[in-house]
Design a protein around this nucleic acid. Structure first.
Lengths: 165, 165
DNA sequence: TATTGTTATACTCTATAACTATA
DNA sequence: TATAGTTATAGAGTATAACAATA
């Protein structure tokens, strides 16, 4: 229990893009499919961001959580879960970790003593700022691959895809 | 051990896109970032494909493996791992599962008795065909969200993104 | 010595169900 | 009864390290 407390440094997938293999492998119909290419692109992007955030000693998975709390101070854990598309029980260890490391404060409200109000501490604001730097660098790298001409259109397509049933 | 053998039907994230919340949550800078939108799009796409393949009693995670074996008959487990970007040890339970269910055949070679040659069985070919149907339907759904005008360009961008260091 | 595949082990992320305390 | 959060538990997916068999 409370597994989220242990912070490991080597969740990486260093071996991910090893030597591309002797003989090229046939991808068959996969090669032209959006679903497949979407997954590959997302994995590459996540991997690159992980690397950057690990350089500053942060966990890429915490970034979205810190951002959402910073952007919506006083948000409850359940609301946060909804926004991130995760069950509230999944957030308990994440927040335990962030609180223990002094980045997030949980405070009870008077009106409804069941819920917590989540806010960033000063250290949390700082950590988020560092992660934002990483994210900006990361976005610049992605933009370079996308090309300035295609960016807006690409982003619009991604938004439409995220909304499919 | 050999955890891959148990097939669960409820790895789903039914609660993923629950009621979109009373008050809209501010995404802040996340909203305009490719990395974030890429993740959301990929999750939606994976979720949709999971649903379709579950309808036919198949695991979406097995699709790429079956496709790669079907496309490269006689491939070894190590090569397969390289192609999928996974460690060979990660494939052992996956292949145990596929072999146990009679979809894939492992046969030793004479030339090098360390490696296996992986091939699809007749049942494997059939299962793959059913998954291909799902994938085609899935692609049509994605294409509808993308729009015919943007598709080629979108795919090209995804390929470039997958290649970032 | 190096490589193929397996095993033992561990860690992340996620979920459901049952629980406590509030409402 | 219903909701917010926690705990117990489980499972998928992945990795590293050590190992046996083979090269």
């Amino acid at each position: 229990m409370v597994q989220g407390k242990k912070r490991t440094q080597r969740t990486t997938r260093r071996s991910r893009l090893k030597h591309a293999g002797d003989t090229p492998i046939s991808l068959g119909p996969l090669a032209g499919w959006v679903g497949f290419r979407l997954r590959m692109a997302q994995e590459a992007s996540f991997e690159a961001f992980s690397r950057l955030s690990r350089e500053i000693g942060e966990n890429p998975g915490r970034f979205a959580t810190l951002t959402l709390i910073g952007q919506n101070p006083g948000i409850s854990q359940s609301r946060l879960g909804q926004a991130a598309g995760r069950d509230k029980s999944s957030l308990t260890p994440v927040l335990d970790d962030l609180v223990e490391r002094g980045l997030v404060a949980r405070s009870r409200t008077d009106s409804d003593r069941r819920t917590y109000r989540l806010t960033l501490t000063a250290a949390g604001v700082k950590a988020l700022a560092r992660l934002m730097d990483c994210a900006r660098r990361h976005e610049r790298n992605l933009d370079r691959a996308i090309g300035p001409r295609d960016r807006a259109r690409f982003l619009a397509v991604l938004k439409r895809l995220a909304a499919i049933g």
